[in-house]
Simulated assay, not measured.
Amino acid sequence: MRLQQALLLIGHGGSVSLNKDYLTFGSGNSGKIILSDKAPPFPFIRLDFKPADWLSFFYFHGFLQSNVPDSNTFRYNSIPGRTTILEVPKYIAFHSLSFYPTDNLSLSVGESIIYSERIQPIYFIPIMFFRVADHYLGTGNASATGNAQMFMDFSYMNRIIQTKFYSTLFIDELSFNSLFEGGNLSAVAFTVWD
């Protein structure tokens, strides 16, 4: 019965789809820092839900394969007399809430996580806080943790003078202890434009 109710709820202002396509998210003229328009297409399961004109929810779970070898996607397996390279699958889960107080103004907040090795069913829960799930999965098993990101995007369109002001903040890794002790902010990105 609950699945039936969920499908009815999605039918009124929402949709679920299976795709292989390019995904972009955020503001930017030369590129976006939340979901870049320069990344290759990948297969994903997508949920869009818009319960009101001023609110929308966007979630997807994707299956990544860049075909570019790097140290994070391969594991070396030494067998006496030979070395083999095992490719490690990667996945991404993403969700955001977008608010539209007026036709000219939007504010989005959300988070994403990239993880590897094997599919984690907990990331198929669209409203799950990925950071909390990552800590839960990593308890006693550091190799099960992923790379979580948080973001905020703001956009204002001034139609009178035909100008768009936007700003994006993307945080890949943030440690408040390190920040207050003068640590490195290299995992924080932002854009501002008008």
Rank of each mutant, 00 (worst) to 15 (best):
P69C: 02
P40D: 10
S98P: 03
D53S: 15
L64A: 05
N72P: 04
L55D: 11
P69M: 06
T83Q: 13
K38L: 14
S116M: 03
L86V: 09
S66F: 04
L105N: 06
K38R: 13
K90R: 15
V109P: 00
L86T: 08
L55I: 14
H95K: 11
F49V: 12
F60V: 07
L47G: 09
I85Q: 14
S98E: 15
S112G: 07
Y59S: 11
S56H: 06
H95V: 08
K38H: 11
L64D: 02
L105T: 14
R46D: 09
L86N: 14
N72H: 12
Y115D: 03
Y91M: 10
D48S: 10
R75W: 05
F99E: 07
D103G: 15
T102V: 13
L55Q: 09
T73E: 07
I85G: 07
R46L: 10
S106R: 13
V68D: 10
N67F: 07
T102M: 10
L107V: 15
I79G: 03
L97W: 15
Y100C: 04
I85D: 05
S112N: 06
Y91P: 01
N104P: 03
Y100D: 04
T102G: 10
E117K: 05
P43R: 06
V88T: 15
F99T: 10
S106N: 11
I85E: 15
L97E: 08
I45Q: 04
P40I: 01
V68P: 01
L97S: 10
V88C: 04
G110Q: 03
A52G: 08
S106E: 11
V109G: 05
E117N: 11
Y100E: 08
I45A: 13
H95G: 11
P51Q: 10
